[in-house]
Each structure stands twice: as structure tokens, then as C-alpha cells.
Design a protein around this nucleic acid. Structure first.
Lengths: 332, 332
DNA sequence: CTGAAAGCGCTAACAT
DNA sequence: ATGTTAGCGCTTTCAG
């Protein structure tokens, strides 16, 4: 029923090898034969079977992508960066959600290995020893996107989160604030706990501002969480006058909660988020934000992977992209 | 280097067939043999090669998903619905972005057929004849998610867009409005042009409100477009007092633009969007919205596909999900 | 309950 | 420039 390379060969009076050659653009084919074969391919509507090809060549031209949750803009942006570059290099993507669950991540790695992907791009907020171990025995190359591993041994693409956080907080300090809250996503995330948080503390320390643990909140990375966090911290006898948040949603929650108690932004309190998604421009006041270039991280990660897959020499397996701040209306 | 089914067979002193049976959970294996084989599999870290399996069995347990743009929350939500159900039925997903481009869609269909996917879920705002033709000759079943084809012949999952739009506009009419704008995404989308728009007109007609084409705007489905549209239509000598928008972003743009000229929502103008994404709750005033259950549409579409793939009998190939309105603060 | 053997559709030496 | 021939690793009759 389905037409195979053999059918084409027979109809064109050539061998399978020749058909294979023209299909794969091998130059060692006489133009006339090529034309003849192409004609038959067209007439028979022949379409190469990628599975058979994969088995024979041990290459599937598909890469696995494991991210926490595609329905989250944050990760979706990353996925799009990955996909665009993958397409550019003729790879397809097998996309799976891990929900930040270690067990699922391991399971997914296994099924992707089983599917013989040529490589994997993974984003994980907490690369455990177990997973690291698993990745080190991977049959295909892996690169981390927007994720760090303790060992700092895996190929990866990130920005300097510590420095970026430092700069954001410094901006707030420069604007005269002494009481600056850090409203973060979960501290189970290495980047939140060991990078952004450190940057926050560095900035305070440099300015000789005493660290107050009451001003550090770590919960979910959501709008509602932002509202709760504001309500909570605003009840302190000496509430913060500025907020540095781990995400746009958190910042918006903070702002709305503040407005609800009659405070205005940026007059009464200033807010800087760490993300700069499309959302940042779609709220009033528009969010000042430390830009996390998710799309670029995804794109560069995929590009790095293609290089590794084709065994090109690479000088820096750990890529650190530049960052910048987008100042809008939630700061003065 | 890699361990194959043959290695396991040899080590366990059984045939490949037996190993295959235990791997695939075939009950026709003596418990002791099964145990022995399992032990060897574990010891050798054997992992079945899905590509070889796919070639032999003609099933890949992967389905293709074609959507316009994963970085758009709208489609990302759909993708998540698809993926969750796919995972539940042990399928993996090959995800690709079409950018609403017919040529790309056709290309993607072809590469997915080539990769021997067991089925495809596709969202396309404009299912052209050419694509329909292509899908009708597909080697694997296809279901449309949140998309309609003229012929209404493809398996699909949708809501009754016309009715939903009608209800939204009726609500506005019931609130006393006579000048109601329809701010839509592109009319190249069948759903916008032949469904939502019709619902809008039906509601007006029923209420004997004269249709005014100046109140119908069709452009991009974006925040900025909403701002522009408001500025444009608000300059009419008899500007609208209510807006029915094709998406949340459009609604937010409208609201912000209105606020910028000193109008307040919902006091001066009322707005209802058609979408109800997470965004709807994250702006002030919170958006009243006709719910487009993207996640469910994706999930049901995938479920439908699993049924078709396993050749189950299905009574309704065209599924119409219920819809509902979420009334919040942008309407009285 | 188990084994032997024939493919699945293609690539990749190796010949010619 | 083209053909021959082994596989790739697994499933699936068909026997027994």
C-alpha cells in the first residue's frame, strides 16, 4: 500500500541505493538519472520513511525538549526559541512537560532516550544529583536552558542571575530605598535561592543596609501569591517601600494589592520584576523589569546543541548571555 | 555498545521473541522466565529502541501537534491540554509552530507523515481547500482542535462560537447599549468571520439595532491593536459605549486606551472579551469574558484522536463543548 | 509457553 | 556513476 524506496527503484529502473542517493542529495548521481528518479518519486507520491531511516542511520533528526509547563508563558517563550532554531536546522521537537517533578523528568529522559532523540534541551529549576547522574550516562547530548547544575559541568545557557538581581536591587537602593523586599518564587529553585537571592543580599550589603529576613518571601510564582505577599509584608511595623520580585506575575500582584490599600506605584512604592514578559507592558503602571531573555536562551541552547550533535569544537560549553534592565513606570 | 534485545535473549538463554513478549507485557510467558528476563534487562540496563519497534510494528506512539504559535498563551493552553491526555495514553508529542502559514502547515504535515506519527492534532484558523485535500489523503488520522473546516467533515473539537458571541453581545444589549463595537482578530480566521461575527450580527438584529460597519474592526489579535482600535473608533461622532472583543489582549488594550482618555470601565464603557485566559483576572478592572476552554478543547481533541487511532466506534466526530460566560468587573 | 525466521524501509560500506 | 548486500533492533506470524 505505502510506496517504498524499493517501488521507486523498480519503476525507475535503478537500484535502491541510487534512489537513496537522490533523496539524500548525494551529488554522485548523473543528472539524467536523478531527473528520472525524481519524476518517479513525484508520480508515486513517494515519501521517505523517517523511522526506517532512523533505524538504519542511527539519527532521527528529532530532539527532546523537557520543560516544566508549556502553558506558562515563561516556558512557552523558551520553547519557541528552541523550536525556531530546531526548525532552522531541520530538527523536530518532542515536547514534554515535567511539572518540575524529578520523577517525571527521569521518566521523560528515559522515554526520549528510547525514542533515540539526537539530543535534548532541558529546563529544570532544580537539577538533582540523580538527574545529573542520569544525564551523564545519556546516549545523546544534553544542554540545560535557563537552568544551572551545582557541578556546573553540563552544557548550559543562562544569564548571570546574581549580577542581574544585584543590579535591579541596586537601582532601588539608588532611588533612595532602605526597606526593599525580595518577593521570590520557590527557593527549591537553585536560581532563586543561590543566585537572585545572593544578588539581592550583595546589593544590600554593599549599601550597608541591614538584611531583614522578614522582607524575603518565597512562595509560588503567581499573581495571587504576589497579592498575599504584599498583604503580609505590608503589615510589618516598618513595611517595605520597594519590591524586587522574581517574576512579572508576582510584581503585578504586588502592585494591585498595593493599589487596593490606596498606595500608588511608583509614588509610594517602587517595583522591579525579573522577567519582562509581554505582560510587563500590558498592565498599568507598566512594569520596570530585569529582562530574562527566555527566547534567546532557548534559541542559543538549541544552537549549542546542534553544534554538539555535529561534533563541532566548542570553546564555551557554559554560555552566559548578557542581560539588561527595562525601565518603565513602576519605578521612578 | 548499546544493548539490544538480542543481548538480553542470549544472557537469559531465551529467544528474542520471549524477551519481546516480556517487554510488551504479553501474558504468554511463564512467570519464572519472565522473572529471569526481567533480571537480565535490569542488569544490562536494556532499553527498547522505539525506532526499531516503530519500524517493525508500524506504530510510533507519537502524535504530531501543529499549532500557530506556542509562545502565545492562547495556543500554549491548548497544547498543554493535548499533551496531558497524550501522556495519559502514553503518546509523545512532536510539536511544531505553523505561524498560521499555509505553506508551513503543509510542510509540517508532510514531515510528520514522514516521521510516521500515529495521528495529528492541528489548530488552524483557516483550513484551506488545499490543506483539507492533504488531510483527506493522510496516512494517519487527524483531528482539528479549536478550528473549523468549511466542509465540516473532519473530526474536530470546538464550542459553538456563533452562539457564544451572540450571548456576549446580548448581555451588552441587555445592559442597555445600542452602540456596540466588535473588535476582532483577523477575518482570515473562519471562526472570526463566519462565527463570532455572525453571532454579533444576530444579537443586534434580534434587538433591532442597526448594524454599523464602522463599529467592526478586524486586525491583529494584540494589545497594541486594541489600543489603536479604541482610538480609532472613539473618534466617531457617535462612538460605541460597549465593546465585544475577540481576545483578552484586545480587551485590555481597549480598556487602557479608554482610561487614557478619561473614560472609566465599566461606568462609561463596558467590555466583554472572548477568551478568558489567566490574564483576565490580572488586570484592573478584571475582565468579563466569554470562556474559550482551550485546555479542554485540546484535551478532548487528543482523547478523540486516541479513540480514532485505536479504531473505536465514535458517534460524534464533530464535538461541540459547552461554553459559559465569566462576569467580572468590566461589565456592570 | 517458547523459538525460528521473515521482514519493516532504509543507509552505508563495498564492489564494479 | 551505480548496484549489491548487509544489517539497524524489533515485532510477528507460524510451528511446535
Amino acid at each position: 500500500m505505502t510506496v517504498t524506496i524499493y517501488d521507486v527503484a523498480r519503476e525507475a529502473n535503478v537500484s535502491m541505493a541510487t534512489v537513496s542517493r537522490v533523496v539524500n542529495g548525494n551529488p554522485n548521481v548523473k543528472p539524467t538519472t536523478r531527473k528520472k528518479v525524481l519524476e518517479v518519486i513525484d508520480r508515486l507520491h513517494y515519501r521517505p520513511n523517517a523511522v526506517a531511516r532512523g533505524l538504519a542511520s542511527k539519527k532521527t533528526t528529532t530532539v527532546g525538549v523537557i520543560i516544566p509547563d508549556i502553558s506558562n508563558v515563561f516556558y512557552a517563550e523558551l520553547a519557541r526559541g528552541i523550536e525556531d532554531i530546531a526548525t532552522m536546522y531541520r530538527y523536530n521537537i518532542i515536547l514534554s512537560n515535567s511539572d518540575q517533578n524529578e520523577e517525571k523528568e527521569i521518566e521523560l529522559l528515559d522515554t526520549m532516550y528510547g525514542k533515540q532523540v539526537d539530543g535534548i534541551v532541558i529546563m529544570s529549576e532544580n537539577v538533582s544529583e540523580k538527574i545529573l547522574e542520569k544525564m551523564n550516562h545519556a546516549p545523546a547530548p544534553i544542554v540545560l536552558a535557563g537552568s544551572v547544575d551545582h557541578s556546573n559541568t553540563m552544557p548550559s545557557v543562562n544569564i548571570d542571575y546574581t549580577q542581574a538581581a544585584y543590579e535591579a536591587v541596586k537601582k532601588l537602593i539608588d532611588n533612595g530605598h532602605k526597606r526593599i523586599a525580595f518577593v521570590s518564587g520557590p527557593f527549591t529553585s537553585i536560581i532563586n535561592r543561590d543566585h537572585k537571592f545572593v544578588g539581592y543580599k550583595n546589593a544590600l550589603e554593599e549599601a550597608h543596609i541591614e538584611f531583614d529576613e522578614n522582607l524575603v518571601l518565597s512562595a509560588e510564582d503567581s499573581y495571587d501569591s504576589g497579592i498575599e505577599d504584599f498583604d503580609h509584608v505590608n503589615q510589618l511595623e516598618n513595611p517595605p517601600t520597594a519590591y524586587f520580585t522574581g517574576s512579572d506575575e508576582l510584581a503585578i500582584g504586588i502592585i494591585h494589592a498595593a493599589q487596593d490599600v490606596g498606595k500608588s506605584v511608583p509614588e509610594d512604592i517602587e517595583v522591579i520584576s525579573f522577567e519582562n514578559s509581554k505582560l510587563a507592558r500590558m498592565v498599568r503602571p507598566q512594569l520596570s523589569s530585569m529582562v530574562l531573555p527566555l527566547y534567546d536562551i532557548g534559541a542559543v541552547a538549541m544552537r549549542l546543541l546542534t553544534k554538539i550533535m555535529s561534533k563541532e569544537k566548542i570553546d564555551h560549553l557554559q554560555v552566559v548571555l548578557p542581560h539588561r534592565m527595562e525601565e518603565r513606570k513602576s519605578t521612578k
